[in-house]
Simulated scan of single mutants.
Amino acid sequence: MSNLDNLMQDAQRLAGQKTKIKVCGLKRPEDIESVNLAKADLCGFIVEFPKSSRCVSRQLLTELTAELDPEIIPVGVFVNAPVELPAELAETGVIRAIQLHGQEDEEYIRQLRELAGDDIPVIQAFSIRTMEDLRRAEKSSADHILLDQGSGGTGKTFDWSLAEDFARPFILAGGLGTDNLAEAIEWLSPWAVDLSSSLETDGLKDREKIIEAVKIVRSCGQ
C-alpha cells in the first residue's frame, strides 16, 4: 500500500484529521528545496505538457524527484498523455501517484491500472461548474478525485457551496491562496488542498509563500 493510500485511509478513518497540502507545478531545484523546507505533504509535476509554463521533461522530473524529501509524495500530473508515459514513470518509482487532468475516461484508467498496477494511486481532476459535474466525479473509478475550476491553473475558485455535501474525500484546487486557505478548510474540510500559481512571484515558486501556505494549513483544526 502506498503512502498516499495510507494518508487517505487516515483521513477517512480518523475524526478531525487535518487537511494535507499539495504544492503543484514544481520545475526547478530551488522549488524542491522549498517544499523540503516547508514540509509539504505532496508535490505535483506537470509532465511533458508543453502548453504549460510549468512543464517538465521526463529527465528533469527524474532529477528533481531524486532530491525530494522521501516523506513528500511526488505526483505526476498528465494531460491526455499516452497511457504508457505515467505507467512507466510510476513503475520506475519516479512518481508515487498519477494525476489525470485532461479528458481521460474510464477506459484510460483501466489501461493505466493494467500497465502500472493497482498499488499506484490514481487521482482524477474534475472541473466543477454544476452539480452534474460533481455527480460525474462521485462515479469515477479513480482512487482519489480533485475538484477544480476550469481546466486547471486558472487561479479562480468554483462555487464551493456545490461541494458542501460531497460524498467522497477530495482534493480542493483552483484559486486557493494564503488569503482563503483557512476559509476553504473550515468550510469544506477537504482531504487536501492543491496550490500552484498563488505560490509564485513573477511566474516562479516563491519559498516564503510556500512556507506561509503550509503553516496556514497546519494551523487549521477540524
Rank of each mutant, 00 (worst) to 15 (best):
I128F: 09
G153M: 09
V122A: 01
Q149T: 14
E114F: 13
E114D: 14
S140D: 03
P86W: 13
V83T: 12
S151H: 10
I128T: 07
A66W: 04
K156G: 04
T154A: 11
V122G: 02
E106F: 01
T65Q: 08
R136I: 14
V77E: 06
A125L: 02
G150R: 02
G117W: 01
P86D: 09
R58A: 12
L60I: 09
V56L: 01
G93L: 04
L64I: 00
E104F: 05
L134I: 11
W160H: 08
R129Q: 15
L61V: 08
S52R: 08
S140A: 11
H101I: 06
S127D: 14
G76W: 02
D118S: 11
A137K: 06
L85Q: 08
R113P: 00
S127T: 07
I128H: 07
R136P: 07
E107L: 11
R58H: 05
S151Y: 10
T154Q: 09
D143T: 04
G102D: 13
E164P: 00
S140Q: 05
S161R: 09
S52L: 09
I95T: 01
P74W: 01
E88A: 14
E48A: 12
V47K: 05
A97E: 04
K139A: 15
G117E: 01
C55Q: 10
P70A: 15
Q59N: 13
A87Y: 05
P121D: 01
V79L: 10
L147D: 03
Q124S: 03
F78A: 05
E63K: 12
K51Q: 15
A142L: 02
Q124T: 08
W160V: 05
I120W: 01
D119F: 14
L64T: 00
T130K: 02
Q149C: 13
A116L: 13
Y108I: 05
T157G: 12
T130A: 00
H144I: 15
D118A: 13
G117F: 13
D143W: 04
D133Q: 06
R113Y: 07
G153E: 10
I73C: 05
I98Q: 00
H101L: 10
H101S: 09
L61Y: 06
V122L: 00
D143G: 07
G102I: 01
T92G: 05
G76R: 01
L60E: 14
F78Q: 02
T62Y: 09
A81G: 04
V122H: 06
L100R: 05
K51P: 07
L85P: 01
D159T: 09
E138W: 03
E164I: 12
F126Q: 06
Q59T: 15
M131Y: 10
I98E: 00
G153W: 10
L89M: 13
L64R: 04
R129V: 12
T65V: 15
R129N: 13
L61T: 07
I120R: 01
C55T: 15
A81I: 13
S127F: 14
P70L: 15
E107I: 03
G155D: 11
